[in-house]
Design a protein around this nucleic acid. Structure first.
Lengths: 250, 250
DNA sequence: CTTTTGTATTCTGTATGCAGCATTTTTTGT
DNA sequence: ACAAAAAATGCTGCATACAGAATACAAAAG
């Protein structure tokens, strides 16, 4: 996933997915025909399918435990089984689906402990990222994160949960990127993707929501002050609390 | 990769690979026919190929930058292109190969910075693992790690680099496993795999080798004392020094 | 002699067909 | 009527065939 995921961040996913959804669900192939500007899109079908299936899983179109029926799913998406199978193998390596010998693939089901484990690792990684970011980031980059934060606050005040949620993720991703550690960025993105499915369902109460926003305020302040220890601490606390926020919906 | 890697650790890889190499390189298919004891092996060809190709990359049979020629490689291994392609997609998600649209796959080349980045993340993860392991591990499990360590020392005294190296990796993997965090175990395994290729080449001097062994001694002592802070510190230092040990060969 | 364009070959990308395994349904015996 | 065995159906796993893209080579023009 690593080479590709850099280009296809969540924004691209969402945009692409919506486009596909509007296409009267006939065929993914038409995607190639749309003459967009710039260097012509040269995406392989299996790659498109990876993103499409990933979004379907994250958004709950394919619930945990669902068997990925090659024939049926392929017909539904208008593709043959070969690229579909390749996409499934890719997602299996990503950890979103599970391969059962001679019985195909099923959408992986995460236990509460799995989620807790993932959040523990994510917490450690973001603590590292925060520390590195304070050293490596330029003033301009920090300002960009601040801009994201301000926009998120606007969405929070407007009670626009979906956009708030998206910007929230973007901020975490952005901070990790500031650490300028490619391996860290990749692994963080992978964990985010897996947890996205969980958090997408988790509905927090208003008071917890406010607390999360408060933590974000602290984060940005610490980043602007380039206070390694404080940023690292806040990020850790933020993700530690995240477990409380999602545990109810499990 | 996550579901499968748990079963196929490096020992299985190596054993399987050797077996395959002895098979007069005619066909991987015969693998099914060998009537071994126990519950019959029900492995899919693409899965076998993933392990086989991974080992080929790690051991340097396929050097960085090499194009994975589907036709040629398939004929060489005695399999058709379909499962081979599926295996390649899997490895691409693992980060060992890179997919270039319309131009196939090439073995990924890691820059010195990439290696440094990976070691940084690995260091943080092992620090976490050490901390968790001190809490979660049973006395029996710790004794097993000690046994691995003692055997490694024997290999060190016998100057058996290959076995020493293998046991070294096993110890790190074992400690991470003691943390009983599945996500941590998986990600650690993935990074180990990627770095294996690098370390396999890196030849350390005798004095650095001795230093590494000394750090291992400390590690085991800290683990047996269940001293979280000390184990975490030693693991961090060990991997910090690891960068020095490999940087020369880059 | 260099550069550019046309052509041919090779390889990737996708579809389809066939064989074997799993599961379900039907049939037969008690 | 119930249980066990056998047949049938559906799906996965693998191979092969076909179409399109990229590259390499050659020929021609500047």
């Amino acid at each position: 996933m690593f080479a590709m995921r850099e280009k296809n961040d969540s924004e691209t996913h969402a945009a692409e997915r919506n486009r596909l959804k509007d296409m009267d669900e006939t065929s993914l192939l038409q995607r190639r025909a749309d003459g967009s500007a710039g260097p012509i899109r040269r995406t392989a079908l299996h790659d498109t399918l990876v993103n499409h299936l990933r979004d379907m899983i994250i958004e709950g179109d394919l619930e945990p435990g669902t068997r990925l029926h090659e024939g049926q799913l392929g017909e539904q998406l208008g593709v043959s089984r070969t690229p579909l199978r390749e996409a499934i193998k890719y997602l299996a390596s990503e950890g979103l689906v599970e391969l059962v010998p001679s019985r195909g693939a099923v959408v992986k089901r995460f236990s509460p402990k799995d989620v807790h484990d993932m959040l523990t690792v994510l917490r450690t990684l973001e603590e590292l990222a925060g520390s590195l970011a304070c050293e490596a980031a330029s003033d301009q980059e920090i300002a960009q994160v601040r801009a994201l934060h301000d926009e998120m606050i606007d969405r929070y005040k407007a009670a626009d949960r979906l956009q708030y949620y998206k910007l929230n993720q973007d901020i975490h991703t952005a901070i990790v990127r500031l650490a300028q550690n490619s391996s860290l960025t990749d692994i963080h993105a992978m964990l985010q993707t897996r947890l996205k499915r969980i958090r997408f369902i988790g509905h927090e109460g208003p008071e917890k929501w406010a607390a999360a926003v408060g933590e974000h305020e602290e984060m940005i302040a610490a980043l602007e002050a380039r206070d390694k220890a404080r940023l690292s601490e806040v990020l850790g606390r933020h993700l530690f609390n995240a477990w409380d926020r999602v545990r109810a919906s499990l």
